[in-house]
């Protein structure tokens, strides 16, 4: 496949077209996409995939700009997949992350793709996993996946990235109890941003709140410890500590096989999801074509049969088809 070669060569336009393909909702494209991804999986790169999530306004994109600048200066190749929410009403979206990634978006060693979420849950959009496989094959050292919103991002935490980090702002420690419990469990790194100017002492306090909160999650010796880091995206401070931590966690997890285990689990989950989707698609087609459903539901309405009887009859019917 010509496209595969172009991706591996790192041709920008080819990578972009491939991502469009894996994001497409058209059935034909989906088949092509599966073919493409199968081929690319045979030619894996060496990327480390890092997820960045956090509530709106904490400076995720600004952090990525700042951290990314630090990385590209050290000659790393950086792929960024940024997911922006789509409007619930119109379905359209404004993809504005790049307005906050001014310097790195110019750099030839970056590839930055924004994707509308199109209403999918988990802060992840359709095709994000596949897009990261494309960038991996294209030779990017790091793939950052940026998502909005916290609470539904566990899916990403466990199923899409090697390291999941949560970006928070000063003063967010108070909200720790309750709502973010899930996410604090899944996050590997907590990045307290805005450690600058008037907010410095507040940021330190927030960091210690998080430190005491994660002390509950310390597990057995074979997993890497969760880390809490203080950074300032606008002053570009604390960046070397972030990359150090990422590399430490990766090497520790690789040593004790956690790294591969996690990827293996993700792979299983992915296959399950794909199978579900295909079956669901087929069943939906059958359901649409099945005229007995409306007849049976009419019978339920008329009180001629019970609802559960109708459901059983329909299910059996569909299975036999």
């Amino acid at each position: 496949m010509q496209l595969v070669e172009k991706i591996i060569k790192g041709e920008r336009a080819a990578i972009a077209k491939a991502i469009t393909l894996v994001e497409s909702s058209r059935e034909n494209d989906k088949k092509e996409s599966r073919k493409l991804i199968s081929e690319l999986l045979n030619k894996p790169g060496k990327s480390i995939r890092v997820g960045f999530s956090g509530p709106p306004g904490v400076g995720k994109s600004t952090f990525i700009e700042s951290f990314g600048r630090y990385l590209v200066e050290k000659n790393y190749k950086l792929g960024i997949l940024a997911i922006d929410p789509s409007s619930q009403i119109t379905g359209g979206s404004i993809l504005g992350d790049k307005t906050r990634m001014i310097e790195i978006s110019k750099n030839p060693n970056t590839f930055i793709r924004s994707t509308p979420s199109r209403g999918s849950l988990g802060g992840i959009s359709i095709g994000t996993r596949e897009a990261s496989i494309i960038l991996d094959a294209a030779g990017y050292d790091f793939i950052f996946i940026e998502t909005v919103g916290v609470g539904q991002s566990e899916t990403m935490a466990t199923n899409l990235v090697d390291i999941f980090s949560l970006i928070v702002g000063p003063g967010s420690g108070d909200e720790l109890q309750g709502i973010k419990k899930g996410i604090t469990e899944y996050a590997d790194i907590f990045i307290v941003n805005k450690n600058d100017g008037d907010l410095k002492s507040e940021a330190s306090k927030t960091a210690s709140d998080y430190k005491s909160a994660i002390s509950f999650y310390k597990k057995s010796n074979d997993t890497a410890d969760k880390e809490v880091l203080l950074v300032s995206a606008i002053e570009q401070t604390g960046m070397e500590k972030v990359i150090e931590t990422i590399q430490n966690i990766v090497s520790q997890n690789k040593k004790n096989k956690n790294f591969d285990d996690r990827r293996a689990k993700q792979f299983t989950y992915w296959i399950e999801e794909e199978v579900k989707e295909i079956i669901q698609f087929k069943i939906q087609k059958k359901i649409k074509a099945d005229s007995s459903i409306s007849q049976l539901s009419q019978k339920v309405m008329d009180g001629k049969i019970q609802m559960f009887e109708a459901i059983e009859a329909i299910t059996e019917n569909l299975q036999n088809k």
């Binding site: 336009a13 409007s87 119109t90 906050r100 793709r113």
Partner: peptide, 30 residues
Amino acid sequence: TSFADMGFDVDMGPLFQSPKDVAKDAIEND
């Protein structure tokens, strides 16, 4: 904002971009 309200997906570029930056941005986002 109005295109997005009509259902388009709209990428916003930062201010003060050079034509080269715009081209990279446009192609990466296809």
